[in-house]
Design a protein around this nucleic acid. Structure first.
Lengths: 183, 183
DNA sequence: GTCTATAAAAAGATAGAC
DNA sequence: GTCTATCTTTTTATAGAC
């Protein structure tokens, strides 16, 4: 077992239960490792596990969502691709967003900077695509923000209602909502 | 000091840090009571404190948000009133939603039923107002869901970006978005 | 109703053998 | 690289005095 193989498990636990909701015992149980083994891979303990998980999640996001948005394809195609990747990331609305999870709890203060940077990057890259599509810069920025609001809100609602349909509807409508001419 | 006076403090702590993120030491510190005193008011410990907080929050929501939605005023007036109350509840986007906080962490399983019921009630009461306003039942239901998505998402984004403007924009647009004729 | 003191359990972390 | 065992700290919870 190596650090790389642990990250998907940590990612799953942290986004599901939050930083405070995950104990080392739970991680040990889930990874089938002893606590001491976990400290071998992450000498900094839980905080380092969370840091590593953030980096892991960021890489995935960069290489999947942001990369397609920055590609040379048609703008509408890129937006649909983005939605497909987000649909994977959130398992069709059945898995929460790590960024949203980290806006609450103790980790809030510690990891806030990473969360803020990630959100800002996403908005700005998405807005660039919308500009390229022909929207005025200010509108593009607002639309990008509204897209994040819709994604995050739909995830919360789907989770709260224990029903993935709200998220599925939201993401299905997203490409059209982003590019429509009327406000 | 009595139970009633403790509830606003508990409410503040729980929605800010989540169930797992709040320790009895923190509560003791914030309320300026000893731990033993807390157990005098809440023999069931932290779980009972959370239960009481949920009830407290529910009462506030019933007597403020739901009551104006069920009033005899004009539909558009009721919707604007709702937004005013929600603006108070979330302190213009500076305070998170307890329901959203409870969709994560350990308390997730325990308090999920309350959260689900609250969301469903809100959607259904709001949809009734939109029907009364003249929207077809199915559209009204979807619009109500979209309103919750927008509210929750805007709160997450405002918190993540550490900027209350996204929430303020979202809630300002909400009455119009809910009642507009075009999809 | 609040306190001090204390107990019991869990979480976080480390030492050292294999 | 993983384990058992142990330790420290924190958290939850209770007993009993005032």
């Amino acid at each position: 077992m190596n650090r790389e193989a642990l990250l998907p498990i940590l990612f799953h636990l942290f986004r599901q239960y939050g930083y405070d909701g995950v104990s080392l015992s739970k991680i040990a149980e889930e990874t089938k490792l002893g606590k001491a083994s976990l400290y071998h891979h992450f000498p900094g303990g839980k905080a380092e596990m969370m840091e590593a998980t953030l980096t892991y999640s960021q890489h995935w996001f960069e290489e999947n969502v942001l990369q397609v948005l920055r590609s040379e394809e048609e703008t509408t195609y890129r937006l649909r691709q983005m939605c497909d990747r987000l649909n994977d990331l959130y398992d069709e609305g059945n898995q929460p967003c790590l960024m949203a999870t980290l806006t609450t709890g103790i980790g809030q203060g510690v990891f806030h900077h990473s969360v803020k940077a990630r959100l800002q990057t996403f908005i700005s890259v998405l807005a660039a695509v919308l500009e390229e599509h022909g929207l005025p810069p200010q509108i593009a920025q607002r639309r990008a923000e509204e897209a994040l609001i819709t994604l995050q809100g739909a995830l919360i609602l789907s989770r709260g209602l224990d029903d993935s349909l709200p998220f599925q509807r939201a993401i299905a409508q997203l490409p059209q909502k982003l590019t429509q001419k009327t406000l």
